[in-house]
Design a protein around this nucleic acid. Sequence first.
DNA 1: TGCTTAAGTTAAGTTCCTTTACTAACAGCG
DNA 2: CGCTGTTAGTAAAGGAACTTAACTTAAGCA
Lengths: 387, 387
Amino acid sequence: MTSSDNGPDQPWNQQRLRSSNERLLLERLRTAPASRAQLARETGLSKPTVSSALASLEAAGLVREAGHHTPERGRAAVLYTPDPAAGYALGIDIGRAWLRVALADLDGTVVARTDVRNKARSSAAMADLVVTTAHRLVAGSAVPPADVVHAVVGTPGVYDPEAHRVRYALHLPGWGRAGLFDRMRDELGVPLAVHNDANLAAVGEHAFGVGAGSRLFVYVMIGTGLGMGIVADGRPFTGASGAAGEIGFLPWNGREPDTLEDAVSGDAVVRAARALGMTGPLTAKSVFESARAGQAAAVTAVRQEGERLAHTVAAVAAVLDPELVVLGGGVGHSADLLLQTVGDTLRRLTPLRPKVAASALGEDAVLLGAVATALGTARDVVFAQRT
Amino acid sequence: MTSSDNGPDQPWNQQRLRSSNERLLLERLRTAPASRAQLARETGLSKPTVSSALASLEAAGLVREAGHHTPERGRAAVLYTPDPAAGYALGIDIGRAWLRVALADLDGTVVARTDVRNKARSSAAMADLVVTTAHRLVAGSAVPPADVVHAVVGTPGVYDPEAHRVRYALHLPGWGRAGLFDRMRDELGVPLAVHNDANLAAVGEHAFGVGAGSRLFVYVMIGTGLGMGIVADGRPFTGASGAAGEIGFLPWNGREPDTLEDAVSGDAVVRAARALGMTGPLTAKSVFESARAGQAAAVTAVRQEGERLAHTVAAVAAVLDPELVVLGGGVGHSADLLLQTVGDTLRRLTPLRPKVAASALGEDAVLLGAVATALGTARDVVFAQRT
DNA sequence: TGCTTAAGTTAAGTTCCTTTACTAACAGCG
DNA sequence: CGCTGTTAGTAAAGGAACTTAACTTAAGCA
């Protein structure tokens, strides 16, 4: 049989032991400042070990003193905290309409951010825009460019690191060209990882939004297209080929090869509204606003959207059994309008009923997911470099 | 943000270090016997460390000498191998028609096995049958009962360890009673874990069948009901409440609350055949045999089954993106008849096309999955006890 | 000022790993 | 038959990192 993976696959020696314990202390300090004695009690390490590890971490610039704490009785304790300025991470969201870039310190605090209207005509121009925007953001901040250790970019489609290109990015002409992201990486001068936007949105919502603390949850991204990100045990779940959550491809009406994407995306709401007699220059947003105002055709269109969404959620629940389903993306603003219908329909459809909630981060989910992901790598890199 | 889980969450000291390295050597030895020098080269540990760890393992009865190997030149090497008799594990499959029990040593070799016709009238009688059959199997083998360290039982439904009972076991009256498995555990006298049968079948197929080496695959179990097991990175993926893979609840025809289970299970094939004019005492197996013989109505019924199955697979592919889909369960014998239709339909439905294959283990998948799962725990337990 | 209490350090001792150097065993060969 | 080259395995010494136990430091308080 193939080995199930318990047990270590690396030999341990004293150096790894030390490094591991320093890491343990650093991670503990990220939750709150603490004294040596407190760390010893909480981690199970002895006081001398904590002292010595903390001295190493301080010498490496990874932690610093953070004031004192005077207990009820006895000597005052020196508190330590991670040094947020030990490194910085870049998060980048390449969206349909906006390019967003955020620079965060190792605490996860966003220290600089910019949102640029996406007017690029070609994929090459887009790539250039990403690089210059990122460079400008860092230059405009007080952060030394050399301290930016990692970047993560979110884009529609599935990045294939073997082929150095994005697949399935159907709406973006030229975006699937090989080498595009390699060039971006070179010009950016910072290690760059590419992830699917829905997956990043899920990570963002898990790190900073309503998904916090959930062991298994999904983020359904409804906008121009339809996508889903999955976070299991704190990590994105991407499937065998990176295509997990491509629910636009779900079969949905028994026979025809219509895509669910066409039936549930933001555009579908507009089409449904027109079919129901609404006229004029409609957008998904305007239809939802009309529905909110009680306009009958809009209400019906939104209800239909909710029902189809419920089918989607039911399918996801049957396969994955998530604890929580978060609705977000372009129509995220109006998720509250959909929740009722989705909930009601779900009750009719299946005994498996995950909680359904609206996104807490709105338009920022992808960007914050990119930041959170870059942050993870950045912390690893900084720790490895400085110790 | 909540911490992403890199970094250790336990302090390391010398004892854990030693234990971890012994574990590393033991796991390596499971792949093939090896000498101290070879282990040192392969693991990166030094020769003295390997010697000393191996001495501990031998003293603990976890490994033993296994002959010699004479290299091209130089001194002959003493080979070591895990002692398979250091402990034993029980796998139990409680199926509709058969109760199967297997006893395996730590190598995973089945040393005793029995298949008993399931004629129990009540859940209590069934529980008794399980216990007496297991006891009889162990008594009839040369294995000392005290050396059986763990058991895993597979059953339809989802075991809820909080409530001490099985949920969703709709076809088995009384099977959902609280405390049933607690009593079984007590009378068995061996720690007992309860898992869903489809999940175990997936684990079995991953450990011993066509799923070997697959990073992410699913096992679709088609029989009296319809279920699915998921194995991701070698571990079963059970979802937030243990209901992942309950694809019987997938919505499938747009509107009605028909369950997919009713449409795709073995019984559905029989119903379809009758609707197409077949008469007499039909079973799923007989319909498949008629189809194999070219009987028109049966062929049509099987094709319909294949098409519906393809829809199921397409849905699973869109959500999970597995590398491989294995078809098994009661109709597993006839999976070859379905593969063609499933493949063709899948090509029409979606660009996401996982490999689809027939189960290699047939009726034994659940049992072998239970063995593999029990084995994993048994190895941990034996290692912990003896060191 | 001295007592109590908790924080943090020092020193000794233990464990486990590595390096280096050695011994053991085997094969080919003069 | 012993010498040589090669590989396996052990012994001894040294070092890294942990723990325990005892000590020192610092704060509040009578």
